[in-house]
Amino acid sequence: MPLNLLYAVFIFNAIVILGSAICSVTARNLIHAALWMVLSFFSIAILFVFMGIGFFAVIQITIYIGAIAVLILFAIMLTRRSMQEQEDKRLKNVWVALLAVGGVLTVLVMTLRQIPIFGESISTTQVDEMVPALGKALTEPAQYGLLFELASVLLLAALIGAIYLAFDRKKAEGEEK
């Protein structure tokens, strides 16, 4: 692909990421916010493709959009009242938060510029051959096998916790009666 086209697409993608993210955080309606978030996630997946790590793009879509976004949507629907509510942003809060955030951005950028490899480029070549290596890294005890196991434990704990927390006793008792 010619370089300029690459850049153009990339930039367009970046704009979509950030734009949808901004729309998500500023949307009054939570469902709209969640949907904008899905768009943003998708653009991020494309970003991963640009990076050459398509595997992660798939993971991104699967987990973030497939699991997380869906979950959020369900939660929003379950906590229904918030759908009708107007997001009443306190104006004062907004500007202060904007200021704080601006500050963080500035600091981040300044810090990032110190990094020596800042000037380099990432090729867009797909590196699918790293996937087996990744699999090995994840599962081999000598490498990050332990981490992998721990992550699974964490998921289990989260699962149990979520079930327990969300368990509606009253309804259950009501049904038994």
């Binding site: 809060n93 202060v96 938060a97 200021l99 704080a100 955030v101 500050g103 963080v104 500035t106 600091v107 300044m110 810090t111 110190q114």
Partner: peptide, 16 residues
């Protein structure tokens, strides 16, 4: 959080 971010920003700026 806002407050703590402020402080963080300032500290980071100074550190920088």
């Amino acid at each position: 959080m806002v407050m703590s971010i402020f402080v963080l920003v300032i500290a980071a700026a100074l550190a920088l």
